[in-house]
Amino acid sequence: MTALREARGGAGAVGTEAVGAASGNGVTSRRDLLRKAGVALAAVAVAEILETSEALSVVHAEALPGGSSAGAKPAVSVPAAPLASPGSEWRSNVLRMQDELAAALKKPLAERRWGMVIDRRKCVGCMSCTVACKAENGLPPGVVYRPVIEEEMGTYPAVGRRFTPRPCMQCENPPCVPVCPVHATYRQPDGVVVIDYEQCIGCRYCITACPYGARGFDFGEYYTTRTPEVQPYELSPSHEYGKKWVRKGERSPVGNARKCQFCLHRLNAGMLPACVTTCIGGATYFGDLKLAGSLVSEMIGQESASRLRDELGTRPAVYYLG
């Protein structure tokens, strides 16, 4: 920590000196020379970057019509990822889910049933969704809405790994709800189980009652506490439930139970949940299970669709394939 502080102090000092030199009285010092050299170098670098990006955009454009990057030069094959190609299944799925989301939002709340389908055969265990969710909801230490459970099966060489992202299941019969002594957590008509942060007294009974371990407690901690300063991103507001929540002192959501709410604030703004849009494997699907012909409602009709711990009778709105 001291070392870091020194480094910061040092950097500051250098900065001041440099400004001093630049605003000097025209004497060309060695520092000035260096500075000019620096600018020249930077110019070269910028030019190179521009060239490269031009090349990239050309390749990109080339790749588009064919929907294949087979012809691309190896050196620039990176941007031509399948995600960007219009013919890709995932891209069309995202567009379709977005359209369906808009359609679902036109229906009354009670006629929607938000649901999620996670294709475990496509999940690569990168945990992008976990991180995106952390950022989207401003989650502190101790709260993770969507961890990815890893399992290993078989013995070498016949060995496989399976990844199970675990958001809140938004149970139809949620065990976490009846235990709340103050009605702070409840199931909305659209099936999302929410927590009213203003009412929650922080007794944590609901955390013990969830059979999926999907709830956490906000201890009021920051990841950057033991660094020179708490980083602004930890103090910037999150927008859960469409309100502004700044985690400071003991103010809610500090001291509350917290859980995944399918990014309700994004849904209501016409956006898919953060975990869906960041999934690099295209493994997470989202939509209205009650909307006839929606992607998710089609998918849960597949034979391999299942729910976690279905025997409990909680009736999750999150389905798994594979």
């Binding site: 009846p178 009605h183 007294i201 009974y205």
Partner: peptide, 26 residues
């Protein structure tokens, strides 16, 4: 002392959920 929000204890009296054993207890 165990409550996350000590100042909200009174909510158990004003908006109790009698489906919860905790509310019954209080």
């Amino acid at each position: 002392f165990d409550l996350g929000h000590m100042a909200r204890f009174w909510k158990v009296f004003l908006r109790p959920n009698f489906a919860s054993p905790m509310a019954w207890m209080v």
